[in-house]
Design a protein around this nucleic acid. Structure first.
Lengths: 248, 248
DNA sequence: ATAAAACATACAGAAACATGCAACAATAAA
DNA sequence: TTTATTGTTGCATGTTTCTGTATGTTTTAT
């Protein structure tokens, strides 16, 4: 049996069943498991499959999120770096959706041992890379535009959760008008998310500061952290500097 | 024996069997392995075959399985076209995940007015394109590899649903051993999905017919439709032709 | 917390490899 | 015909690749 031939058979197995165990492949191809492991490493290095503990899975099963076209990606990455410091092992975290949250997840170490609750399909998919994390999706009716789950089901499930931290992106934020949004369903879910966590962190690019949308999510004094790409002492953030709010 | 003649015989072997060992060729053509090696290098340089350690393989064989993204895409599209005819407006449909289901969703008209229940993040995302559809995601703990939600929560939610149709892809299917899979959590969810629907349709590429995985999902007679890329009267499908099962 | 499985690494023998060289044959030029 | 040239082949050589095993570590599951 040629090595290449063996690797083609492994690929066929992966493509057919989406997954394969090293032990099974070893028996099937009549070689040692170490040889299979070497093959899998090689195929993985060539991007033909994704290696996992015990075997390999199909690459098409793996979702990769491209960040190239994200608006203000540099600012959002800066925000994400700061926000990531709030997340520590063994925490229970409620996390939202959107491009800023997406940037945040990329900054979270992939070996984090935390429990994440989310209603965002994209967020959940991204968190699949974090092998040691516990990812819980709160089901419900999927809102097509925002790709998040909504409805009474979600709200009631959230009411049963007592998380350490809730991290959300924002659409509008204003010193007096508070956090605002334009999507009714999203607002209802966000309210429930905030209520379900001990502390809440909002991330926003400075461009959104002092802007107001139609629907209110919560007041500024109901939030605990505000994270922007600016340094905390920046003049634009002065109006948000209150005792109850930590500007990062 | 002329060199040219020998190389033609080598090519014949490669085209016939997709592979050949240097040692075999040496014995067969009664020349030293070094000569064979020189021939293979020459043929490889001319792009007639792909030289590998120990021999050579056919060029077509070489590229056939490297394209992981689109494995058997034609077959799967054909299956999807047939499966899509089962889906009609106002139906309640439980739908799984995987590449075949993904192909199916692409064949479903985007203005379908049906209600879809799913546990697959990718499936839910894809269904967001169907503006008039009602997409319900059944939440739970997300299994990292398969990117579906699992756990008691999902099972219990499914038990409350009475859908018209359940559509799933398969990993293993066998006339006696039934539908089988390799992932325990996925199996539990699939069982519940089948139970929650009046009828069940399984999609599979013919390559998977008669294959068996470790864990059983259900018997063949518990399913209502079997959809492959073959015509229903194909010999490979004979063993699956039972009164209770419509082969499409 | 513990045991089992999977893992990475290093090593060794075997097989396959490239290279240079000599022998030989076929061909071309003298 | 003889000689020179070229091409092919087998063999000796040292090198590389492949694979199984042994070792200790990491990861997973219980």
């Amino acid at each position: 049996m040629l090595k290449k031939e063996r690797q083609l058979l492994i690929m066929k197995q992966i493509n057919l069943h989406n997954r394969a165990l090293s032990s099974d492949l070893g028996i099937m191809l009549n070689v040692s498991e170490d040889t299979i492991r070497r093959d899998l490493n090689e195929l993985s290095a060539n991007g033909k499959l994704v290696k996992v503990h015990g075997g390999a899975i199909s690459k098409s099963y793996h979702f990769q999120h491209t960040d190239t076209e994200t608006y203000a990606i540099q600012e959002k990455t800066r925000i994400a770096q700061k926000a990531a410091t709030l997340i520590r092992n063994h925490m229970y975290i409620i996390i939202g959706g959107g491009t800023t949250v997406s940037a945040l997840i990329r900054q979270i170490p992939t070996d984090i041992q935390a429990t994440f609750f989310t209603v965002s399909l994209i967020t959940a998919l991204q968190l699949c890379k974090h092998t040691k994390a516990n990812v819980i999706f709160l089901g419900g009716t999927i809102a097509k535009n925002s790709q998040i789950s909504t409805g009474g089901e979600v709200i009631s499930k959230l009411s049963e959760i007592h998380a350490d931290l809730c991290i959300l992106g924002t659409n509008g934020i204003h010193p007096e008008k508070g956090i605002t949004d334009s999507d009714l369903e999203a607002v209802q879910v966000k309210k429930a998310m905030i209520k379900a966590a001990r502390e809440t962190a909002f991330m926003t690019i400075s461009e959104k500061l002092d802007s107001v949308e139609r629907l209110k999510v919560c007041n500024i004094d109901e939030t605990d952290y505000l994270i922007t790409e600016l340094t905390p002492d920046h003049p634009m953030l002065k109006a948000y500097q209150k005792d109850s709010l930590k500007v990062i």
